[in-house]
């Protein structure tokens, strides 16, 4: 059903993912984070969503300059227009998937 190696990888990966996720919630119960930390983290949602979005746009390899994935860039155009215009995440995702399928058909 499951090989020993895969099981070890899954359990190990689960632990190293889970611990950073829950530690701040456990610490937060015991101590109050300094105001300065909260002040800076206020900008985390905007910063990290921006970074995560851009990360998916680039082919990156340490040591070389990042290059844009052109199919992603092209598919992003109708996606962003939909997002700004309709402000509906579900429609944005549908338009994105269809756009990308079309782009891959042509490119």
């Amino acid at each position: 059903m499951i090989s020993r190696n895969v099981l070890l990888i899954l359990v190990g990966s689960a632990l190293v993912t889970w611990i950073p996720r829950i530690t701040p919630f456990i610490l937060g119960k015991m101590v109050k984070f300094p105001a300065i930390v909260t002040r800076f983290l206020q900008y985390l949602p905007l910063s990290i969503l921006c970074a995560l979005l851009l990360e998916t746009v680039f082919n990156a390899k340490a040591g070389t300059l990042a290059t844009p994935k052109w199919d992603v860039v092209v598919a992003l155009v109708p996606t962003v227009i939909t997002a700004v215009w309709l402000k509906d995440l579900m429609k944005t995702v549908v338009v994105g998937i269809v756009a990308m399928a079309l782009v891959r058909l042509v490119m």
């Binding site: 949602p45 905007l46 962003v80 944005t92 338009v95 998937i97």
Partner: peptide
């Protein structure tokens, strides 16, 4: 699955979520 553009769901979702927050 890339042929169907499914992997782009991630980028599209990040784009929508980022723009809402922005």
């Amino acid at each position: 699955p890339e042929q169907f553009g499914l992997d782009f769901a991630l980028t599209a979702m990040f784009a929508g979520l980022f723009l809402t927050q922005f």
